[in-house]
Design a protein around this nucleic acid. Structure first.
Ligand SMILES: [Zn+2]
Ligand SMILES: [Zn+2]
Ligand SMILES: [Zn+2]
Ligand SMILES: [Zn+2]
Lengths: 152, 152
DNA sequence: TATGATATGATACAACATAACATTTTTGGG
DNA sequence: CCCAAAAATGTTATGTTGTATCATATCATA
C-alpha cells in the first residue's frame, strides 16, 4: 500500500475512532491535500474537486470541511500563507508534537517537523519573561527549499 | 521626552539617513501603530486617520505607506494576523535581530523580542535537515498575554 | 520655471473568509 | 419501516485583506 492509501485509511480509522464520518466530499478534500503534496488554499481545493472529480463544492463547504479535518487533526492551517496542508503524521501512532512548518516561499512545498521538548521550553520561558503564556503554539517558518534554491 | 516622541524622532532620523521622506501621512500611519500599542490592520489604520486626524487616506495608500515603513524597518507585518505593528526597537541603536513576536489572540497586544543566536542556529540546522534554507526568518507565536489570562 | 522623480488618489477587482438561513442526508428510537 | 433529531451540505450575501492600473499631485533641482 502506498503512502497515499495508507494516509486515507488511517484517516478513516481516526474518524471511526472519534465517532465522526469521513464522507465522500471530506475524502476528496483530504485527497487533494495529500496528492498535491503542497499547501493549497480553499479555493484551489474547489478547483481540484472540479478537475479531479468533476464535483462542484461551494467554497463555504470547503471551509467547513477544512474545519472538520482540522478538528480531526488530519489537516493544519498555515496562517502565514492562508493555505491548508495535510498533516504529515496521519499514519503515525505517536502523539502529535507541537508542529513546525517550513514553507517554501517559491513553490509552497511544506515540511512538517516536530519541535523538541527543550526548544519548546526555551520558547515558553522567553514568552513568560514578557508576560505571555503559550497555548497551542505552532511555528511557521518561511524559507526556500533546496529544489527551488538550485533552480536560481 | 516620552517614548512616543522618542520613536517619532528616531523615525525621522532613520529616514533622513536613508535619504527618504517621512511625510505627514506616513507619520500619521506610524503614529497610529505607536499609539495603539497593538497590531492593527490596514483598514483599522484608515479608521484611525479618519478619527484622529480627520484625514481620509485610501486603503491603497495605507498599504503603500506600510510597505515604505517596512522598508525603513520601522514597521513589521504579522503574517499570521494580517496586521501591522511598529518595531519595538525604533529607538535602539543596535542592529535589528531576527524578530520574534508574541501575539495575544485576545487583545492583539504584541511583544517583539529578539531570538538568541543559538536558537536561530538550532532552527537553521533543523530546517537544513529537511532541505530548507532560512532566508529572513521571523517567528510569530500566538499566545495569551497575562492581562487577558487574568480576566478569564 | 521646466523636468523627472516621488507620493498619493481613484477605481476596479482578486483572493480569502464568514454569517445566516434553507435543504438534504443520515441515524436511531418507536 | 417511519419519523424526528442531528449532521452535512447548499445558497446567497457580505465582510475583510490585498493588488493592479492608470491618473494626478507634490517635491527636488537644475
Ligand atoms: Zn501534523
Ligand atoms: Zn520550493
Ligand atoms: Zn523590530
Ligand atoms: Zn491580551
Amino acid at each position: 500500500m502506498n503512502q497515499y492509501d495508507k494516509a486515507m485509511s488511517a484517516a478513516e480509522q481516526q474518524c471511526a475512532q472519534s465517532g465522526s464520518r469521513l464522507t465522500e466530499k471530506r475524502k476528496h478534500i483530504l485527497s487533494g491535500l495529500l496528492k498535491s503534496e503542497k499547501a493549497l488554499s480553499a479555493y484551489e481545493l474547489v478547483d481540484f474537486c472540479k478537475n479531479e472529480y468533476n464535483e462542484s463544492i461551494p467554497a463555504m463547504s470547503v471551509y467547513r470541511i477544512l474545519d472538520f479535518l482540522q478538528s480531526e487533526r488530519l489537516v493544519h492551517k498555515l496562517s502565514t500563507a492562508n493555505k491548508y496542508v495535510a498533516c504529515s503524521h496521519i499514519t503515525c501512532k505517536h502523539e502529535h508534537e507541537v508542529p513546525q512548518f517550513l514553507i517554501c516561499s517559491e513553490c509552497q512545498h511544506v515540511e512538517e517537523i516536530g519541535i523538541s521538548k527543550s526548544l519548546i521550553e526555551t520558547l515558553q520561558k522567553n514568552a513568560k519573561k514578557v508576560g505571555f503564556e503559550l497555548v497551542s503554539p505552532q511555528l511557521e517558518i518561511n524559507a526556500i527549499c533546496h529544489t527551488c534554491l538550485d533552480k536560481t
